[in-house]
Design a protein around this nucleic acid. Sequence first.
RNA 1: GCUGCUGUAGCUCAGUGGUAGAGCGCACCCUUGGUAAGGGUGAGGCCGGGAGUUCAAUCCUCCCCAGCAGCACCA
Length: 669
Amino acid sequence: MTELLKISLPDGSVREMPQGSTPADVAAQIGPGLAKAALAARVDGELRDITRPFEGDAELALVTSKDVDEALELARHDYAHVLAEAVQNLFPGTQITFGPATDDGFYYDFAPPADRGAFTEEDLPAIEQEMRRIIAADTPLEREVWTRQQLIQWFKDHGESFKAEWAAELPEGEELTIYRQGDWLDMCRGPHLASTGKLDPQAFKLTRVSGAYWRGDQKNAMLSRIYGTGWLNKKQLNEHLHRMEEAAKRDHRKLGREMDLFHLQEEAHGSVFWHPQGYKIWRGLESYMRRKMDGAGYREIKTPQVMDARQWERSGHWGKYRENMFVIPDEVPNTEDEGELVSKDADWMALKPMNCPAHVLVFKQGITSYRELPIRLGEMGCCHRNEPHGALHGLMRVRQFTQDDAHIFCTEAQVVEEVRAFCKLADSVYKDFGFTYAIKLALRPEQRLGSDADWDRAEQELRDAVRDAGMMNDEYGWEELPGEGAFYAPKLEWHLTDAIGRTWQVGTIQGDRVLPERLDASYIGEDGEKHRPVMLHRAIFGSYERFIGILIEHFAGKLPLWLAPTQAVVATIVSDADDYANDALAKLRAAGIRAEADLRNEKINYKVREHSLAKVPHLLVVGKREAEEGTVAVRTLGEKEQRVMSLDEAIAMLREGATPPDLLADLRD
RNA sequence: GCUGCUGUAGCUCAGUGGUAGAGCGCACCCUUGGUAAGGGUGAGGCCGGGAGUUCAAUCCUCCCCAGCAGCACCA
């Protein structure tokens, strides 16, 4: 007797299907259009191959290209397999490892044959061509369940030592599957599209090659990774390539040069030379942050750039962080031509990589009563970290940077409220810049100090604070990240989303009970006894360098008026207007506007073009007519229309527009 | 730090085994022009640093430095 399977569809209908039938069969039964469009199936909520037979009664939803997220994920995973087969066809002896889908495509990590090095970009066109051939062959992708022994044997027989190693280590009890396309196969959980021909040969592009460590660990072998971007059709691919071009136009390194904001050079690689224009942005941010922190009960301090190594030993940095520190011999260097620069038994000092130990030392001066807590010590702290050279990247990753740092010393009972207040403060800052963001909780890492009970409490405090702030929800992108915390404490992280959807981690707060202990910080409690304060490390911009880099890219260089280095340029049409332009400039500057005058012997077209490209927010054009009438023709960046108004009106408009957002809020209150 | 690529004028980039070119920018001259490039002339380069091969190296080889794309690490 053959029992029929009951397959429920999203519209509520139920179809009876014979044993062994597949989602594809259901699609075919419904109609030829759907049969063609269906790419995969959601069976009881699980994404599956459309050709995989039902195992019993099931709820079925067919996935088509209209289900963009699922369809893209499937297609990209297929592209990865096609890439892997193409590479093995062209370069026999290459081993396969892993090849997942990514946010905009896919990659595959290979171990190239011993007789050739890593793949290079020159290899990509040939690989793309082979991939197109494989797609055109329209080979079915077939799922098979194998035993662990079968897998290990097969990979060993085919010289695939990485895959064999992986197969041997997969957890017990998991169903092990391979996906086959013709003669080629890879161990893979799936699911996949029904055949290689479901891919659009014009909708992918191999983009770059790079190294990547086997299993993500730098102790392991370096593999050769090939990246591609993959889509459902050519239009999507072109749109993506266009977005990439737009992102490149926003690159802060390019804009920084074009707008004359800063430069970097070999002799101080990883440290920024701020030019006058760039430093105006910095100063604007710094003033803003001072007002915010002053208003939130922080007191600003300034602590030494260099401290004795013994101090760093006490704080634990010498032991845990030394490889990232710049050290300085505490002696007069040898001035002779011969001999070593520094004697063998030199005492050492170090540039500070963090501000926290110095802040504890400030806290420890005198005797602190519980009545004084919380004490919030802020510092625009300039830190040096000897970062791995490969990590350096424009303003985003540098070796000298300044943090909007602060440490809050408080009692156990005050922790949750202080963290809650910080959540609110950070929120107001990010909103002032128009950022949306996500709050994430980085939980205990595998290697950590302290008992599990301590970690339970520390993590729960941060959760409680975010909940109290009303931010533990999707609106604030709440998410917990297992294993990502610092070795001494869990941390809350603020991830900004910029104008083109990229995310940047900037702000953070973390509760620390280790450093107060190590440096013996204490306060006198109500009971007259000494107690340990909790120390909260926190920052909102993170670093000025990185935050400015993010702002440049977020605004594509068109910074809001209050931050724009030059807020207005008075540009003359004829030299007869020079005197008037200079008067206007003086008035603008007297009103606190960062203005310049352009009296050059150039046509107005030229001046408009140049200042527009320089992203000057307002151009005040003056010719004979304006000089006679006491007006200016205002051309605002991004607008084609000009507005003629009196100079006084223009100054009033600029003053209002140039008010920092926190001061605007004060006006409204 | 690891893999791959790159390094030529202030910027963007051509180029060749016989010591260099463009556009923009810059300087000077002409032009006083009404909202995204007016015209002319000119200056400007130890071809990233060091070693090697060669009669000869910016070009080929090796080492170093820096940058770029990733990896790993991270504000």
